[in-house]
Simulated assay, not measured.
Amino acid sequence: MPLHKTLEQPIPPRPATVTAAGAHAAAFTESHDVVAVPLRHPWRWVLAAVLVLAFAWLATSLWNNPNVDHATIREFMFSPQIIRGAGLTILLTIISMVLSTILGIVLALMRLSDNPVLNAMAWIYVWVFRGTPLLVQIVFWGYLGLLYKQISLGIPFTDFHIFAVDTNTLIPAFVAGLIALTTNEAAYSAEIVRAGMMSVDPGQKEAAYSLGMTPLFTLIKVELPQAMRVIIPPMGNETISMLKNTALLSLIAVLEMYTVAEHISAQNLRQVELLVVVSCWYLALTSILSIPQYYLERHYGRGSRTLGPTPIGRVVSLFHRVMSTR
């Protein structure tokens, strides 16, 4: 028989016994499917309820405490003095973080340099400023006039001076606090930036050089954007820590928020109430700072993980679901 005719022959139907057996097996499998029941965790809910009750009890106890004057809290929560102190706190935080980040990048590049002198100098800087308390550094810069009466510019190892300025005039309390916060934070920023730079594949730099890019252009356009995924989370935490560390400047009489609250409480003897006021302000400011950190992490983490909806997106989605059910 010709081959083409053989191929054109219709395929015979399956026997009825096979079809019936297949249907019986499918029905048996369908009727005996394993139903997955999620494991219950009742004690988790019990623990959650206990924690909620404990928190509610503590909050109620604090709020109804007869030793807390709520009128004082309401009076000074938005007083002009506290608001000016909060503004100075924000200003100190922004300037210190910008300057310390720039200095930290320079120190990180020095740590990664093949030059042993630059590497050693950067290591010593990080070792000194990370190894001594910030409190000590603030006091040192605040009382620098006790060590150097004047700061002069001239030829080293001679008595020739171009000009000389009184130290306390050149470095008042605000500048001393700013220097202390910046130099201390730069040591931590340097290590954060260095860790981010080391997380970038060395082949990225080699590929950029092979395309004719300069080292500076490679750093700005290739290495730092990829390192930001590692840098942003700890730098966000450092920014929040910087905001709170400004309270230590009360030692050198910088009129930031905590210092202002101390001065007010020294007059009306309402220390606890003023502490509640500044605590609320610190919580509000740190919450605001957490918002750009969240979106920066999402922006630089786009290629490394699947991004879920933002909190605003969840609210909008919930709103649409509620409206659609009506």
Rank of each mutant, 00 (worst) to 15 (best):
K5Y: 07
T6H: 01
P12G: 07
R14P: 09
P15N: 14
A21T: 10
A23T: 15
H24K: 14
F28D: 15
L47E: 05
A48E: 14
V52I: 06
A54Q: 02
A56Y: 01
W57S: 06
L62D: 02
W63H: 11
N65A: 11
N67G: 12
V68M: 13
E75M: 06
F76K: 00
M77I: 10
S79M: 00
P80R: 04
R84V: 09
L92I: 05
T93Q: 02
I95C: 08
S96L: 00
T101D: 04
V106K: 05
S113H: 04
N115V: 03
L135V: 09
I138G: 06
V139G: 04
G142I: 03
Y143P: 02
F157E: 00
F160G: 00
I171A: 02
A173Q: 08
V175Y: 12
A180M: 08
L181K: 10
N184Y: 01
Y188G: 01
S189G: 12
E191N: 05
V193A: 07
M198E: 11
E223Y: 04
L224S: 12
L224M: 12
P225M: 12
M228P: 01
I232R: 02
I232K: 03
L248S: 00
L251Q: 13
I252C: 03
V254S: 01
I264M: 02
V278L: 03
S287K: 02
P292C: 10
L296R: 02
R302T: 05
L307E: 11
P311I: 13
P311E: 00
S324G: 14
T325V: 14
T325L: 01
